[in-house]
Amino acid sequence: MVERILEVERLSVDIQVPAGTLRAVQGINFHVDRGETLCIVGESGCGKSITALSLMNLLPSSATRTADKLELDGREIQNFDERQMADLRGDRLAMIFQEPMTSLNPAYTIGNQLEEAMLRHRNVSRSEARDRAVFLLEKVGITGARGRLKQYPHQLSGGLRQRVMIAMSLMCGPDLIIADEPTTALDVTIQAQILHLLADLQREFNMSLILITHDLGIVARVADRVAVMYAGEFVETGTADQVFNRPSHPYTQGLLNCIPIPGKTKRGAHLGAIPGIVPSLIGEMHGCHFASRCQFVQDDCLKGKIAFREATKGGHQYRCILSSAESARNLKKANAA
């Protein structure tokens, strides 16, 4: 029996900016089961990070969140006040950020900052919290953990700091970890280590993970399910296999065309690129958000709201007017080229 950890229906986030209302997230649906990894993929500015922050209720004050449903462990948390949310954060729900260099407080030792996460939520002594911190630092692959507790963030490299951040998120054994581009700021070699680490820990502690990234290589390696986000909405969702083997939305196809696949992409061959830029999210939008950059655009694309279609059986959906057969043909053509 699968245990549903997070269930989100029609989540929207509006941000007030001087030019008007920026509709950062426009009614997205998703869910995460226990032990599962959901990857939210999309380019910069598509609303991924805002989605993450809205789950934590850490949005800037200029932003408002609405949803039909926002259930964590079967509890509706939409109307939780700041105090109740603070009780959840760091306990049931933890977050890892993109910038390990600036995400730790420079004035306190990492031991202090790790222990604090547990002392806040659990009725434990400082030495118990310290033991937990040492245990987790070792888990995230930091040697000489006990000695490290006395170190300050500036004495650690970016990769080490991100490991500390991961350990910190695990202090209370959360049900769900939201990792917002956790490897973007790191060297490529370190990126792989951190990803493997996250995947291993997730399996070991049977946690759920929402991994937010723009890097499809990462998605292919760790995702159970994928949601492709474009201009504030999901354009394609499905299992990692479905989305990678049979990308159905022109945007997903374009994205996959942009990355080299070892053994498949010929040396010296041109990689794809999606022309144009992401549309402004300020004000009302009509039709398909991707229409301005899509090579298959038709008149119908600009009318009304485009509904999801089923691409293949088993929850693989995409938001496009092209039929499943047409999109498959486009994919074949692109692969041949």
Partner: peptide
């Protein structure tokens, strides 16, 4: 960022 981290830990 570290204030966001502190809040993400659930600190009051």
């Amino acid at each position: 960022d570290y204030i966001r981290t502190a809040r993400a830990k659930g600190l009051r």
